[in-house]
Design a protein around this nucleic acid. Structure first.
Length: 806
RNA sequence: GCCGGGGUGUUGGAAUAGGUAGACAAUGGGGACUUAAAAUCCCUUGGGUCGUGAGGCCCGUGCGGGUUCGAGUCCCGCCCCCGGCACCA
């Protein structure tokens, strides 16, 4: 029977309508007897450009997992939503004078339509939108809880100021000295900012990585970012005062070699001791210069060390009792440790460079190198010298002994430091969640009462921040001026809004109970659905977004609002899809592929197959229009299998092994995210069946089920055409019999002196004698053995027969 | 500089308890069908070399060594690319 042509446009629409009408992919909150499975993808930012071909890579991958899990009997939650606050929308609104809310709605509508046309099995009834007041009400609520617990505070600190966006950026948002999103210049500017005390959770954020199954490199990135280091805090006396200068060092063993100290230009001691500093003018000039430099200039470019000595101010090395000079230099950062260091030029590269440049003494306290040539920093091999009671010890022993000594003398203590800094949580922009606090002259910062949440964004005329860098909300005196919830007196609202990261830090919780008006999500729902079983997203979010959402989750866990300390049990990341020219896809490079065009050209199923077949899932891969067509040809071949179907519910003897093998290969490869080889296995099977000329109904049935998660429309259509009962999404995932995945006869390679000389067929599990009999009959092998003495024979059952001759 | 991950045909990539390198695609070449084209199908497609032919031989997984009957896979020493961190004391 010849079937009609494969027409994706027609059948894809048909099945999408059926799925929508029957609500087949809704996660059931009623039937909690089944085991649950929560598959999560990073929700998209609904940009004006529409869907990117990168989005479906992640969405198809977890759609495969979600569809397979349903067939395995799980109650699956695979939700979708929109991370809808953000700068591009605001910039578009400014340019076109359209309210960002309207822009967002339009963009979301487009995204939704595009996502639906790809046939993802999302539970559309749980869609969330972070810019919807019913959603951000709870983002504000969580912020207030943080505020209540003292984890949100306002600080007057130098921040990274993007001169182009006119907003403050977190350190994490400054990449290579420029703004992460716009590429604009970033300078340091002092501003009063809301901060979140993520540093309070630093250790737990490291420790609890042991509880989760993340790709190893993601764990490494998390640890790297938090940057824990162990050492000691040491107090140095300042001559002529009763003040102590505290420093952090990871090498307390080298204290005897500390020949000078360096303060950060921002160190408060400078102003405190201004009167003693004889060269104040010079110091002041240096400080001004440093303040002007951007973080980029201060860190990245600074090859040559600069600095100024503080004349009239010296310190005492507590180990040697000697008087040592104090300098200021911008290589010491106020934001790490104590903002001051003890300099050990013999054993620290930076200090060595500084000492060389300014002629400061270099003392060797760890023998093993040549400190006149370079700093000796090895901690494995050195032996302590010139260090009093430490002499003769190894570095690690000396560290311990020195800390004990410092603690005994009250001169210092063991200390752990983290590179992680608190999270700058204020943005001076319109299109974000308003921070729900008011400032009262009498009461200070007062939270907006819970029953008044959400504090909604008022309509404004103009979305541009003013020159002071204040949010456009600051211009609305009617909105800003309010009454204090505590005393009823006059008060002003906070006009800063929250950063993008806010709404995305907890959205996966809202999916569990998206329409709840009384709480962000009901605990019973969370008990069932969380934690997320598998979270896939872009490599670019594996540091910050992951860290922030883990932090919020831990905080909510401490409040008893969520049942687990970690939000995501498993996290994987996919690689980027590049343009055909191997460059990053962008409008300016003119290499952007539009998903709508692809669907029109080859259909959503072929698109999905291609995105999975394109290459290793975690690697960046260039798009190939030719490769795409190859995947369409594959589906055409699958479709034509309908012409050669023959009766038979089971597998034909000829294909029995192949069927069991393919089921195993595909099932396992899906789980390991080796989607490319899973598709290749199905291609091989399809090719072999075409070559054989017929396929039994039983074989067809299995193949359709295996392929369904990748290409759901064509497989459902064929299932129906062939009169199989029901629909694939209600079937049980096929199983394989391990014993049937191997052939009765196996090929064994024959090597002579390591070179392949032939291949023989023997019964599986054949003994060496049986194998040898066949091997020795092989013509090429005989030739290779001619006139030689066999020295050794090695036989690995079912694999290789290796002969060594002389 | 430190920490990860990699270098395999013309291209995307397969293959790691060491055991037939190049699965599956894509490109290129040849052929069938067609008035023709598209589509489809078949053969071929790492390099070199010998042979009329069937077929054989040599080389080949970034480079140089090593271990082994046997190395893309393990060990030592390099080179290069990608990602993360980076004056973090």
């Amino acid at each position: 029977m010849a079937v009609r042509e494969y027409n994706p446009a027609e059948i894809e629409k048909k099945w999408q309508d059926i799925w929508e009408k029957e609500g087949v992919f809704r996660a059931s909150s009623e039937d909690k007897t089944k085991p649950k499975y929560y598959a999560l993808i990073e929700f998209p930012y609904p940009s004006g450009e529409g869907l990117h071909v990168g989005h479906p890579r992640s969405y198809t991958a977890l759609d495969i997992i979600a569809r397979k899990r349903r067939m395995e009997g799980y109650n699956v939650l695979y939700p979708i939503g929109y991370d809808a606050f953000g700068l591009p929308t605001e910039n578009y609104a400014i340019k076109h004078k359209i309210h960002p809310k309207i822009v967002t709605e339009k963009n979301i509508a487009r995204f939704r339509q595009q996502l639906k046309s790809l046939g993802f099995s999302f539970d559309w009834s749980r869609e969330v939108n972070t810019s919807d007041p019913s959603y951000y009400k709870w983002t504000q609520w969580i912020f207030l809880k943080l505020f209540e617990k003292g984890l949100a505070y306002k600080a007057e600190i130098p921040i990274n100021w993007c001169t182009s966006c006119k907003i403050g950026l977190a350190n994490e948002e400054v990449v290579g000295g420029v703004c992460e999103r716009c590429g604009g210049e970033v300078v340091r500017k002092v501003k009063s900012q809301w901060m979140l005390r993520i540093t309070a959770y630093a250790q737990r954020l490291i420790d609890d990585l042991d509880l989760v199954d993340y790709m190893e490199k993601i764990k490494i990135q998390q640890r790297n970012w938090i940057g824990r280091s162990e050492g000691a805090e040491v107090l140095f006396s300042i001559t002529g005062t009763d003040k102590k200068l505290s420093v952090f060092t990871t090498r307390p063993d080298t204290l005897f070699g500390a020949t000078y100290m360096v303060l950060s230009p921002e160190h408060p001691l400078l102003d405190e001791e201004k009167d003693r500093i004889e060269n104040w003018d010079e110091v002041q000039r240096y400080r001004e210069l440093a303040a002007k430099k951007s973080e980029f200039e201060r860190t990245e470019i600074a090859k040559e060390k600069t600095g100024v000595p503080l004349q009239g101010l010296t310190a005492i090395n507590p180990a040697t009792g000697k008087e040592i000079p104090i300098w200021i230099s911008d290589y010491v950062l106020m934001s790490y440790g104590t903002g001051a260091i003890m300099a050990v030029p013999g054993h620290d590269t930076r200090d060595w460079e500084f000492a060389k440049k300014f002629g400061l003494p270099i003392v060797e306290v760890v023998a093993g190198g040549d400190v006149t040539k370079e700093a000796f920093v090895d901690t494995e091999t050195g032996t302590m010298v010139n260090s009093g009671f430490l002499n003769g010890l190894q570095v690690l022993e000396a560290i311990e002994k020195m800390i004990a000594w410092l603690e005994e003398k009250g001169l210092g203590k063991a200390k752990v430091n983290y590179k992680l800094r608190d999270w700058v949580f204020s943005r001076q922009h319109y299109w974000g969640e308003p921070i729900p606090l008011v400032y009262c002259e009498k009461c200070g910062w007062v939270p907006v009462p819970e029953d008044q949440l959400p504090v909604t964004l008022p309509d404004v005329e103009n979305y541009v921040p003013n020159e002071e860098g204040e949010s456009p909300l600051a211009n609305l005196s009617e909105w800003v001026n309010t009454t204090c919830p505590a005393c009823g007196g006059p008060a002003k609202r906070e006009t800063d809004t929250m950063p993008n990261w806010a709404g995305s830090s907890w959205y996966f919780l809202r999916y569990c109970d998206p329409h709840n008006d009384n709480e962000f999500a009901n605990l019973e729902e969370l008990n069932y659905w969380t934690p997320v079983d598998w979270y896939n997203g872009g490599m670019e979010h594996t540091t910050l977004h992951l860290l922030y959402s883990r932090f919020w989750h831990k905080f909510l866990y401490d409040l008893g609002c969520v049942p687990t300390p970690e939000p995501y049990m498993k996290r994987t990341s996919h690689g980027m899809i590049l343009g055909e020219n191997h460059e990053k896809m962008s409008k300016s490079r003119g290499n952007v592929i539009n998903p709508d065009d692809i669907i029109n050209e080859v259909g959503a199923d072929a698109f999905r197959v291609y995105e999975m077949f394109i290459g290793a899932f975690d690697q960046a891969i260039p798009w190939s229009q030719q490769g795409l067509k190859g995947c369409r040809r594959f589906l055409d071949r699958v479709w034509r299998l309908q012409d050669i179907v023959v009766d038979g519910d089971g597998y034909s003897p000829k294909f029995e092994t192949a069927m069991h093998r393919t089921i195993k290969k595909v099932s396992e490869d899906y789980e390991r995210m080796k989607f490319n080889t899973a598709v290749a296995a199905m291609m091989t099977l399809t090719n072999d069946i075409h070559n054989a000329g017929s396929i039994t109904r039983g074989e067809m049935r299995t193949l359709l089920m295996l392929l369904n998660p990748v290409a759901p429309h064509i497989t459902e259509e064929m299932w129906q055409n062939l009169g199989f009962p029901g629909t694939i999404y209600r079937q049980k995932w096929p199983t394989w019999d391990e014993a049937k995945t191997v052939e009765d006869m196996v090929e064994v390679a024959v090597q002579v002196n390591g070179k392949l000389r032939g291949v023989v067929n023997v019964a599986r599990g054949a003994s060496q004698e049986e194998a040898k009999a066949v091997v020795m009959e092989h013509e090429a092998v005989q030739r290779a053995l001619l006139g030689k003495n066999v020295v050794k024979e090695i036989y690995i059952t079912d694999r290789i027969y290796s002969i060594v001759v002389k």
